[in-house]
Write a protein that binds this DNA or RNA. Sequence first.
DNA 1: GTGTTGAGTATTTTT
DNA 2: TACTCAACAC
Length: 740
Amino acid sequence: MSQIDLSLLNKEQLEPVMQTEGAVLVTAGAGSGKTRLLTYRIAHIVQNLNIPPWNILAITFTNKAAREMKERLSHMLYNHEQLHVSTFHSLCVTILRKYIELTGEYTKSFSIYDESERKKVIKSVAAEICSDKKDNLTEQIDAALSTIKNEGISLDDYRDIHKFEYHIDDIVLAVRKYNEILKKSNALDFDDLLNFAFDILVQYQEAREFYQKRFKYIHVDEFQDTNIIQYKIVKILAGRHKNILVVGDEDQSIYGWRGANIGNIRDFISDFDCKVYKLEQNYRSTKSILNAANAVIKNNESRIKKNLWSDGEEGQEPQIVSNNSDSDEAEFLARTIKGLNNKGMLLNNIAVLMRNNFLSRAPEQKFMFYGIPYKMYGGFRFYERREIKDALAYLKILANPFDTESISRVLSFPKKGIGEASIAKLIDSAFRQGVSPVDIILGLINENSSQTYDLPNSLIKKLQPFAKKIELLVDCKEMSISALIRLVYKTFEFNEALSAETEENESRKENLKELYNSILQIEKNNPALSLDEYVQQIMLYSDLDADKTSDSVTIATIHSAKGLEFDAVFIIGLEEGILPSSRSIDDESAVEEERRLMYVAITRARKRLFLSYVKSRFMYGKYNSAPISRFLKETGIYFHEFSVQKTMAKHSEYADFSSRIRQNSVSSANSNYKFNKIENLIKHSIDIKLLKAGSKVMHKRLGEGKIISINYSTNEADVEFNNMGKVTLSISLAPITIIE
DNA sequence: GTGTTGAGTATTTTT
DNA sequence: TACTCAACAC
């Protein structure tokens, strides 16, 4: 491959790209091309300076960002495979897999406990310490654990700092017990991954030198969102070559609640003798969008002033949209998006952004109703679904037979007549004898040995048939992962357990199938992947890879939309109590973080921006009214008090789906759509040529209907539904099939 | 040990 | 609304 052409970079971007030696801090405003800077710098170091890709480390904040960066680099470098581009958490898993056995306390097939497993352990610890008022204790233990692990302070120091607190001794004890349980289970939580990796780098010279020598050039993206322990890791990794570049933007720091420490930027300046560069030219948004963003963020007091500018077009003024209810808001979204789409904007270039997950409900329903394909980021995550966790638990106990949370799942699903108390006995017996719970279960196959485990006979009877199945599974451990998961479904009779004909069960079976398919996919891409690596990796991924092939609208929380950009962005729920969230409203620094969220949301937009609030929103089972978000006022955009109809009329791109959809039939579209995959819809959609007036069709939710007329230029048809009346549907999108 | 019911409560945000 | 948790019945 030829030299990397750096002429596409502007002067501000070029300088830090060329400054490869030593420490570099880049403060990069939103949309100023920091990803471009990072990828070109890495490509430049490898291609133009002839540094082996093996020597490069790039740390991103999310898996999505890592994937994207790898993707871009794959077009620039032929030997990109050897670059290490990953999140902090996966970097730490890599380090731990290589070196954790030096500690003698864990094996490299350790389990990773996610938030729900962590919560369960905390709860059990709280219950053990004091059975009354444990609710409060649970929260306190949770808080203590996260402070200790995010800030990397010792338990003793924590006790000193909080020595006057009421329950401090209980909390310290609980933290000890929590860590004890995880250790016995050969398990680490997300924070442990960082802390243990750091400890290993500190304590074992071999490990430290290996990575210090290897990573000659280190890059950290989203530096404003690193926490204290992450910064410590960066510092120790860069300890030898000291070639490190960090990119960040204070105004986009939105993870304070997770321990992100803006002070890291200051510390970086004093810890390293670093050069500082600024990127202030925005290439993404129109001037009018940028103006709104700047107008909002300048209200933050604690902030270094900067001047984000653009020499692009003025563009259309962002629009403030008012609606009576969340369902009207969603109606507005559907129609406007359809209108933009009709005018040629790809759905892929459109996003609906919101403060929290529950706001997605109304838009999802409307999009389903109108057959607008969408993908949802954040929210219900695939690997967090019950049935998926249940299935994976069987694989996890093969990888790590000490994983008590998975053991308890395996014993609970499918139902075997074994309850919580029995599970506790089994695990306790294993701990006492220093063997794994799986060993105990397998031991029960030989009836004679049952005496030694001191378990009640009734329980042993229940466990024995199960033990045989587990033995079969263990014997097949060397098979491929996909074969194993099939064996699990079959041997443990998942289908039978989900045979009751409910919608819920159908969707569970569907998801289990999808899990199997995803494993096939992963095996194809990575044939050498071992079982324990697979279950570790899966824990760091929140979702299956989004389907890139279909054109669909993005619905996302603002947090998960960070780093993305779209032609058109709709920010919904701009009401006090939502953005800013009710929990932050009386804490000025919390409000500033909320304001940064607003800023991040606005700066996702390239061309069009819609800011939406409603007069009354359905939440907690009733309608609530809240004042308009202060941030909306801060944008300085002229405030039109639209009525819904006027709003609609004002938008030329507003699509008229149907002249007369009866309002009540529209709002009768009910819930339970959330597990339906948009792919299903697409599979069901049909070719317009197959339709004619008079055809009978079946709509996935609207039921049976008859085509009245077809508009071939817009690809839409008027359909008379038996129980809905007349509805205009997009033929290529609506979930319909021809029945006659 | 499991399943049902009713009360009470909750929605930030993610690796 | 929709979910969790405790109490109670079997």
